[in-house]
Amino acid sequence: MSSRLSLNQGTVRTATLAEALDACVEVGVESIGVWRDRVEPIGLDEAARRLSDSGLRLSSLCRAVFVTAPEGPERRAAIDENHRAIDETATLYAAAAAGSTAMLVMVAGPLAPGERDLAAARGRVRDAIGELESHARDAGVRLALEPLHPMFAADRSVVSTLGTALDLVEPFPKETVGVIVDTFHLWWDAQLAADIARAGREGRVASYQVSDWITPVPSDLMLARGMMGDGHIDFATITRSVAATGFDGDVEVEIFNQEIWDSPYVDVVRLMRERYDALIEPYLRSDES
């Protein structure tokens, strides 16, 4: 059990990279999704060394910067930063244990100030992927576009459904550009099962991320994520759909929740493992009856 479980560092948001790695090792979690802002304080080389020493796999690097700005200095700076993020992903991947994934998470970005044209903003996402894809391919990194809940369309991501994400990545090689299935962002969508099946047919499932949707919803919707089993999401059905695509990578638990952030890191990781073993892992098995 738990062999495919990965701690996304967002779940222990206040932990240093060293603290997150230590918590995984203590609890027996074998993989971690690293955040760039946890790498920055110690530097990339030191982060790579610590990841190597931990013996953990890398499941992702989070994240690329937003790419929806219109052409101009802001957009050029974002593209340049994402080239650096690709190189960081490759460096950490090279340091991590066998079975790791060289994947850079991409969150599209918001509407530009005063903008109303969602189609144009989404087009700029596609164009940005086009600028980054060849570098990612050469570096052995897969770009993974993550759709976010539609409540974030104006200020965080103009890509709200898995179907939209698949349309945007379609022009690019599946080996280099994929999509993320995140239960928190997608559980509400009546088209989700069909879109997951499409993602499987097209070879686009790059990552599966899990957390629950809790109510009452806090004033900051970003903090409405809960530990699996504490909310309303049908993990068995979604996980079966993802498993049916042939996805065999690590499953990241990514939770933004103040109460969880305020809890001891090892306790959070231990509970995460217990809930994963009960609510996720059984439905990933091909022999599940």
Rank of each mutant, 00 (worst) to 15 (best):
G178S: 08
S160M: 00
R198C: 09
L145C: 04
V159G: 06
K174H: 15
E146S: 07
R142L: 10
E202S: 07
T183H: 03
D182A: 06
P173V: 10
T176N: 11
L192W: 13
G200H: 11
A199S: 09
L186G: 07
A197G: 11
I180N: 01
G140A: 07
P171K: 05
L166G: 07
T164M: 14
A206G: 14
A194V: 11
A144T: 08
R204E: 07
T161P: 01
V177F: 12
I196K: 08
R156M: 10
E175M: 04
G200I: 10
H149Q: 00
A165P: 09
L145Y: 02
I180M: 07
P173G: 11
L143M: 10
W187T: 02
P173W: 11
G200W: 09
R201K: 15
G200C: 09
F152W: 12
V141C: 08
A199T: 03
F172C: 06
R201C: 07
A153G: 00
E175R: 14
R156D: 02
V179P: 09
V181K: 01
T164Q: 15
A194S: 15
V181N: 00
A206R: 02
R201E: 14
V169A: 09
V141A: 07
E146Y: 06
K174A: 15
A153D: 10
V169N: 02
A153S: 14
H185P: 02
A154C: 05
A154P: 01
T176W: 11
Q191C: 10
A197Q: 14
F184Y: 15
G163W: 07
Q191T: 11
V205Y: 09
G203W: 08
L166E: 06
P173T: 09
V158D: 05
A144L: 03
G203M: 10
V169C: 04
L192N: 08
V169T: 13
Q191K: 10
L166N: 05
A199I: 02
K174N: 10
A199C: 08
G163Q: 02
V205K: 02
V169G: 04
A165D: 06
D195N: 13
F152Y: 14
R198E: 14
Q191M: 14
I180H: 06
A206V: 12
A190R: 14
W188S: 05
A194T: 14
A199D: 03
V181P: 05
R198F: 12
G178H: 06
A144K: 00
E202L: 14
R204Y: 07
L168W: 03
A153P: 00
L166I: 11
T176I: 11
V159F: 05
V177P: 11
W187Y: 15
L166C: 06
D167G: 10
V159E: 01
G140W: 12
V205A: 12
D155M: 00
R201Q: 13
P173C: 11
V141W: 08
T164D: 14
V179F: 13
E175T: 15
P173M: 10
V141I: 07
V158A: 04
S157D: 01
F172M: 08
P147V: 06
A194L: 13
A154S: 13
R204Q: 04
D167I: 02
D167L: 03
L166F: 13
L162F: 06
G140S: 12
A153E: 14
H185L: 01
F184D: 05
